[in-house]
Design a protein around this nucleic acid. Structure first.
Lengths: 182, 182
DNA sequence: CTTACCATGTAAGGCGTTACATGATTCA
DNA sequence: TGAATCATGTAACGCCTTACATGGTAAG
């Protein structure tokens, strides 16, 4: 198996508590993981083939509501591999915010432009925050139903807290720019 | 010119207020931009060549303290290009935290392991925060010296605020895990 | 009947890192 | 004299996204 390819680990993680198709994996990721780990079909389907080739998952055909599906299941080897990866220290946490990049060079543009970048960022966050709050509520209500829920909650809390901080920062950033204008 | 290649824009941004060598560009980025935009020599040097080929920068040889250097200067075309890019809306702000990924799948490992990922994250943040605070102080003290400083301050404030929130989150995350143990 | 969603994939290309290769100078 | 830092690059490779290609089903 290739060394610690993250997309493989993510998929194994998702498969570790239910069988899924490639399409469903993408949906799961778009709903819950996309805040800290994105993936496209172009990386998911090839990764699934690799996992099968390496014996970390198995593939079988299935039919559901008249639709043909390729259902993937994690193997024991897959579970071991996942556990080994989880035990290793984190290699990299990376943040790449183009918004901050453009603001950093704000002196080369006019104040209005910088403000509009901040406002666009603010709107995006305000649009996404309700989904996180919804997830937070659902997880808190059913925390005891599944031991996995507290781990999901931890990651959602990260999102809620940072998003609220982002909004506070937007206010402060706008203030710094408008105060210095007059 | 290739369409909006970010590394080109970053370099032009840095060149927009001083001439620099490739080596110095890397140092600048490691000190200030690395919190939201990283880059390696393997991307910087080729990008510099591209910029010269496209007429967005010029290269000249220079000697300083007995050392030979290749000094890059932004051209008028380079300034225009930078301004155009700054005026365009932000395309993507991306966060990729492997720490959150491993915690999301925490149910597949033991609580101790999950806690150790949180602690490692906490330590990394605690180690970096002082540098941000130092930069914050310096920028606030000399805010009026240069109109660019308020833009730098905005990005540093982003770091300070989010890092403090990260530390609060670490406490909460640890609490969620240990409370559910007993 | 046509739009949206379900479902699976491939190919080309972009973008970047790591490791390698080289060599000068400074400082302890 | 050996390590650290200054300084510039290349090559191989990894990993991912975008766009393309295809076709079935559900719902309005």
């Amino acid at each position: 198996m290739a060394n610690e390819k993250k997309i493989d680990c993510v998929i194994l993680g998702l498969l570790s508590h239910e069988e899924l198709t490639g399409y469903e994996i993408k949906k799961r990721m778009d709903k819950t993981l996309k805040y800290f780990w994105g993936a496209s079909y172009g990386s998911i389907y090839p990764a699934l083939s690799d996992l099968v080739n390496c014996g970390l998952a198995t593939k079988r055909e299935g039919t559901e509501n008249k639709r043909n599906k390729l259902i993937y299941t994690i193997t024991d080897a897959g579970r071991s591999y996942l556990k080994e990866w989880l035990a290793l220290p984190v290699q990299k946490d990376e943040l790449r915010y183009e918004t901050l990049l453009k603001l950093f060079f704000g002196n080369e543009q006019n104040t209005e432009q910088a403000l509009s970048h901040i406002k666009a960022f603010e709107e995006k966050i305000k649009k996404e925050l309700p989904y996180l709050l919804e997830a937070e509520k659902a997880l808190k209500d059913y925390l005891d139903e599944d031991t996995a829920h507290k781990y999901y909650l931890i990651t959602v809390e990260f999102g809620v807290k940072t998003y609220r901080t982002y909004l506070e920062w937007c206010e402060e950033a706008k203030k710094i720019l408008t105060d210095s204008e007059e």
